[in-house]
């Protein structure tokens, strides 16, 4: 599997490493994907890198690659963001993978081996949901709201109504809320805020977890929040050119 830029892998690693220390990557002809729960079982993260994300991609037999994020991160730090990455996994020797980084002019090539782990992964079945509310907005804006409000309090409440979407945090000494309304005047789709809902709803989530989830803003200019009463929120980042996505399901806080 050859990616045109290592930056994609670096960003994916940054987006999951606070939550997941080791995970199985499932490789098949469609691409590479992973699903993992954090140790606290509060967030389920799913990553899909489709064949379209790669400059070249071949997977003759489905394989599971058990990857330890820490050494993987050390290896990836050796790659320049604009260097190509080739990942090679051999079906005859499933003890390790090889990673080769090449810069555009091929003046430099570096090769690494990463030992694979035998991870007892558990796959969760995510039911198809009829969401009560969906909000799409610029991922940078979502990130700023979450980062700011997480400083105010550890509970982040998201309320959707005809007023728009309201993010509220309450701490011991202060309370803050931010309201976003659907944008009509913005031309660029990636800068728009779109809100749809069937019934007004209000749900509370742990702000520190939501903060970790905003790391994926580096992967996509927009984010979609899907909410339903008494269900985990789905925070979805779609990468450009049908390259794939990262989705987080965060369980709510409830009385």
């Amino acid at each position: 599997a050859r990616l045109p830029r290592s930056a994609v892998l670096k960003k994916i690693l940054d987006s999951v490493k606070d939550l997941v220390k080791e995970t199985n990557w499932d490789c098949n002809e469609e691409g590479m994907s992973m699903q993992a729960l954090d140790t606290g079982r509060i967030v389920l993260v799913e990553v899909m890198l489709r064949e379209a994300a790669f400059e070249s991609y071949a997977c003759e037999v489905p394989m599971t690659l058990g990857i330890d994020m820490e050494p993987f991160g050390k290896v990836l730090r050796c790659a320049g963001g604009d260097e190509k990455v080739t990942i090679k996994a051999s079906r005859n020797d499933q003890d390790h993978i090889e990673l080769v980084f090449e810069n555009e002019e091929k003046e430099r090539m570096s090769a690494f081996e990463l030992k694979l782990m035998d991870i007892d992964g558990e796959h969760m079945a995510v039911p198809d949901a009829e969401w009560g509310a969906e909000i799409s907005m610029p991922s940078s804006e979502f990130k700023k709201i979450v980062m700011d409000l997480a400083e105010i309090g550890s509970d982040l409440t998201i309320a959707v109504s005809k007023l728009g979407v309201t993010f509220t945090a309450q701490g011991n000494n202060c309370k803050g809320s931010m309201v976003l309304q659907p944008s009509t005047a913005v031309d660029k789709k990636s800068e728009q805020v779109a809100i749809s809902f069937t019934e007004p709803l209000e749900m509370t989530f742990a702000a520190p977890y939501m903060k970790m989830i905003t790391k994926a803003a580096a992967l996509s200019s927009t984010v979609t929040l899907s909410l339903d009463e008494a269900c985990p929120i789905c925070v979805r980042y779609e990468m450009e050119d049908n390259a794939g996505h990262i989705k987080y399901y965060l369980a709510p806080k409830e009385d």
Binding site: I42, L44, A125, P127, K253
Partner: peptide, 14 residues
């Protein structure tokens, strides 16, 4: 704050 729910209360193992 409110108590934190777990993902496993909503999604089951495959």
């Amino acid at each position: 704050g409110k108590p934190q729910q777990s993902i496993t209360s909503f999604f089951k193992k495959k």
